[in-house]
């Protein structure tokens, strides 16, 4: 009887390990999606096409041109801010600084912060902001460029709201979302950048995402 119980225990332990393996956490794929039916080898196959972030062209705080290519092979977090923002930006970037410090030596992770006030936030202003914030190197880019392109990208692709409104303090309405994007340019998570707890969750999710992508490459 004892032997039998031992055997069951071993089987159970083994099953538990197996189960854990299959149950590895995976992040959902967000954004709009389309079903595309195509013919492969004479058979009708329906495939899901996920929304991806399209190409863009901006300039970072060093004056370098940044496009989708500059982020090739990277997981990244995007947010929208402006340097003179009196409301939620300081707390967003206080929290983003934690993310920066956690991953600044990781080669396949970046942070991009788009200014929604490019008229004031010139490359020189962004560089000064970066210096004062205490960020160096190329793991956190502050991007400046065409205002319409920035707003379009935010509203249509990252699906966050941005609006100019002279009635609010600072003159802009925007939400404090951090948007997590994977190496295939798909949106994998939204986090309230003003909430320390959600940002801590994002740090965990970035680790999950890095592991996930690495296994996919290995297969």
């Amino acid at each position: 009887m004892k032997k039998f119980a031992g055997l069951i225990l071993i089987i159970l332990a083994f099953a538990a390990c197996k189960f854990n393996d299959a149950d590895k956490p995976r992040l959902p794929i967000m954004g709009n999606r389309d079903a595309v039916t195509k013919t492969v080898n004479g058979k009708q196959v329906t495939d899901t096409v996920y929304q991806t972030i399209p190409d863009f062209k901006f300039v970072n705080q060093y004056g370098d041109s940044i496009t989708q290519k500059s982020l090739k092979g990277d997981i990244y977090v995007a947010d929208f801010f402006f340097t003179t923002c009196p409301s939620i930006c300081p707390i967003m970037h206080r929290n983003m600084l934690t993310v920066y410090n956690e991953f600044k030596n990781v080669p396949d992770f970046k942070i991009i912060s788009h200014t929604i006030d490019p008229k004031h936030d010139s490359v020189a202003v962004m560089k000064k902001y970066a210096d004062k914030l205490g960020i160096t190197g190329n793991s956190w880019w502050l991007l400046q460029g065409n205002k319409e392109q920035t707003y379009d990208l935010g509203q249509k692709n990252y699906l966050v709201a941005i609006k100019q409104d002279d009635g609010t303090p600072g003159g802009y309405v925007h939400q404090g979302w951090f948007v997590l994007v994977d190496k295939q340019k798909r949106i994998r998570g939204y986090y309230d950048g003003t909430d320390e707890k959600q940002v801590a969750k994002m740090i965990g999710d970035i680790k999950i995402l890095r592991a996930e992508v690495n296994t996919e490459i290995a297969q």
Binding site: P86, I88, I91, H93, L133, T194
Partner: peptide, 16 residues
């Protein structure tokens, strides 16, 4: 005040 100056009045790097 807290958004900028922080929960413990710590400010933010060299910005605030």
């Amino acid at each position: 005040c807290q958004n900028c100056h922080g929960e413990k009045g710590e400010g933010l790097s060299n910005l605030i």
